[in-house]
Each structure stands twice: as C-alpha cells, then as structure tokens.
C-alpha cells in the first residue's frame, strides 16, 4: 500500500501541506481558547490588564513547551508501538 508512484507522492505531499496548515490553525486556536479561558476573568474593563497580559504570555510559553515535550514522547511511543505491532504480524 505504501508503494506510491511519483505523481501519487506529489499529490499526497500537497494534501499533507494543507493538513499541516489546518493543524497549525487548530493548535493556534486552541492556544487562544485555553489561555484566554485560564487568564481572563475580569470584565470591568475592555482592555487586558497587566496581570492578564502576563498570565497569557506565560501560558503561551508553557503551552508551547508542553506541546514540544508531548510531541517528542508521542514520536517515541508511536515508533515503539509500530515496531511491536510489526513483530506481532510477522
């Protein structure tokens, strides 16, 4: 199944690029949701306070670090799981 011709690979590449854009937008949107929900709770003003700004900024940094760490773990775990499944099959 993985034996794709050159033109099939190109088509797949194009689709994966679209998917990456989409995933990035989802990630960005989730970050805004999460950090806004966690940091903003005062609606006596229509501008972000210093405290809220600081909280959002730390939330973004921490969320990126979380993403990075989990992506590393995910890659490792996914690799060892794939290896295990191939051992079972053959």
């Amino acid at each position: 199944m993985d034996n794709l011709t050159k033109s099939e690979q190109q088509e797949l590449e194009t689709r994966l690029q679209k998917r990456q854009v989409k995933e990035f937008m989802t990630l960005f949107g989730g970050l805004v949701d999460n950090c806004f929900t966690a940091c903003v709770d005062d609606f006596t003003s229509k501008a972000l306070s210093g405290r809220e700004n600081g909280c959002i900024s730390r939330c973004v940094i921490k969320s990126m670090a979380t993403q990075t760490r989990l992506s590393e773990r995910f890659a490792e775990l996914n690799q060892s799981m794939t290896a295990e499944m191939q051992n079972k099959r053959f």
Binding site: F28, L31, V32, C39, V40, F43, K46, A47, E52, N53
Partner: peptide, 20 residues
C-alpha cells in the same frame, strides 16, 4: 460583559499571534 469580553478576546488573539 459581552462587549468587553469580545474586545479582550481580540486583544488576546492579536497578542498571542504576535508572541508566536
């Protein structure tokens, strides 16, 4: 509250976009 929340949401959106 809705008016202020929407203004803050836009500000946060822009801020996070710039930070990234």
């Amino acid at each position: 509250c809705l008016d202020r929340c929407s203004a803050k949401f836009f500000e946060a959106h822009q801020k996070i976009s710039d930070q990234l």
